[in-house]
């Protein structure tokens, strides 16, 4: 699956995204966040407070309980601040 990071999530992790295979046992956005947090110190820092992060699945806003699949593009970012 394609993972994308934006704003300070991207800065803390140190990259704009990564390819990964959906890990066994991960079924939803919240589970994916918990998995990503284990990938390194930058990831752990970015996902330290899950309530500060928003997600999108295939370019639509998603909730923690929404299911994820291996073909999905999943993005993580802070609450939006445009306008």
């Amino acid at each position: 699956m394609q993972i994308l990071y934006f704003a300070w999530v991207r800065e803390k992790i140190g990259r704009a995204g990564e390819e990964l295979s959906l890990p066994a046992g991960v079924t939803d956005v919240g589970g994916l966040m918990r998995h990503l947090a284990t990938l390194g110190p930058g990831h752990a820092a970015a996902f330290a407070n899950p309530s500060a992060i928003r997600a999108a699945i295939n370019q639509d806003f998603a909730h923690l309980a929404d299911p994820v699949a291996d073909r999905d593009e999943v993005a993580f970012f802070p609450p939006v601040t445009g306008g």
Binding site: F6, W8, A56, P78, V80, T81, G82, G83
Partner: peptide, 27 residues
């Protein structure tokens, strides 16, 4: 349109200050 755009479109603002520091704007 402005009210929804500010909360439902994926933009993020980073502020750079003359003093040299920078910060992400919080929602």
């Amino acid at each position: 349109l402005m009210d929804w755009l500010k909360t439902k479109a994926p933009f993020w603002k980073r502020e750079e200050f003359r003093a040299g520091h920078a910060r992400w704007v919080e929602a």
